[in-house]
Design a protein around this nucleic acid. Structure first.
Lengths: 191, 191
DNA sequence: AAGTTCGTACAGAAAAAACTGTACAGACGT
DNA sequence: ACGTCTGTACAGTTTTTTCTGTACGAACTT
């Protein structure tokens, strides 16, 4: 068999192996609020030896350049991909963010921090409305209902305070003292 | 003003206040992989003084009973709602799960545990395929590429091991030693 | 056994999201 | 200044998800 043929056969095998992992990423990336197709994009950039531009991506995935543009922005917002600069290259180049811990933390923080803040705000407002009502009303029935509701809201509030502190664990990096980063031991092709 | 009129006016105010919080829940519940409408369902059950059946829910939200059925199942699977039994009542009754900490943990664990497991499996397989290829191939170029890929995969693996341990924190409840549950202080209508 | 009541499977309708092609603004090279 | 290249806004199309109405099986009542 000619060397050239063999090479392209091996390249195909490599592609297949890469694809195994890319497909799995695509399947699970919805956890980061990212579409499966854009998950494939992530995987493709992940394995790429060079940073990729939008046209590369478009060709590699057989999708429109527009989709690549919006997709890469989504990945960028989630800190999963970053833009790199290369001398003399006009096109935007992207590579995957190497620090997966950071990517996870960022996504985790952004998603939950935002929600807890909004929810706590809503609880506060709701409580105010209810307290107001409690003062105004004459009806015992209303007072009783408001009382119960306020208790429920207070419980919810306690939970959100806890969640906020959990989030802070990741924000401050304290989590890495509790669960230290794993160092990747060297890989040596041993069977 | 008649007492009756005033009562219904106050009830309306109560409804409005409740709605403020319900709407916020609906807006953020997608974090638990639950639809905004079903988020409203959750909020409605949350404030309800009695456990609700499917017909109650359907009427309260103006949605079909079918949707209530599938919606409550989604909430139930996420451990956000639980079925309660009442003597002599044939319809299924539901109330919200009071332990929000548990609900959060369950969702967190289920979502990420599953993904990490699958991803780690995929990494293992991909590595095997690549190691095989490394042994077979003659081409230096392929060997070089495989080498780089294996390093990348090993890094990813380390990350997933870390994530697994983080998940375990919630699974074992150890997280509550690190960030203790907040006790809801009593609420006393004080301005 | 016959008649109700209840929950849900399933198919189709309605709504939302993902994706594409066109078009255009801004940056660059000449 | 003019033409070219690059990224993205936007409108329209395709795909996916959510929601509804019908229909039916299981459990209960009489």
């Amino acid at each position: 068999m000619g060397n050239q043929e063999e090479l392209s056969l091996d390249l195909e095998k490599l592609e297949k192996a890469r694809n195994r992992f890319i497909s799995e990423i695509a399947k699970n990336i919805h956890l980061y609020n990212i579409t499966s197709s854009i998950g494939r994009l992530y995987g493709t950039v992940f394995f790429s030896e060079e940073p990729m531009n939008l046209d590369d991506m478009s060709e590699a995935l057989g999708m429109s350049k527009t989709s690549m543009s919006t997709g890469i922005r989504a990945l960028s917002n989630a800190d999963m991909v970053e833009r790199v600069w290369e001398k003399g290259v006009r096109k935007d180049l992207y590579k995957t963010e190497k620090d997966w811990y950071k990517s996870f933390s960022n996504v985790f923080i952004n998603r939950w921090r935002n929600a807890t803040e909004l929810n706590m705000g809503a609880i506060k407002e709701t409580k105010e409305m209810m307290t107001e009502l409690y003062k105004e009303t004459e009806a015992e029935e209303i007072k009783r209902k408001v009382d119960r509701d306020l208790d429920k809201l207070t419980e919810a509030e306690a939970y959100y305070e806890w969640l906020n502190e959990v989030i802070a664990l990741f924000e401050t990096g304290e989590i890495f003292e509790i669960v230290p980063k794993k160092s990747a031991q060297n890989n040596k092709h041993s069977s």
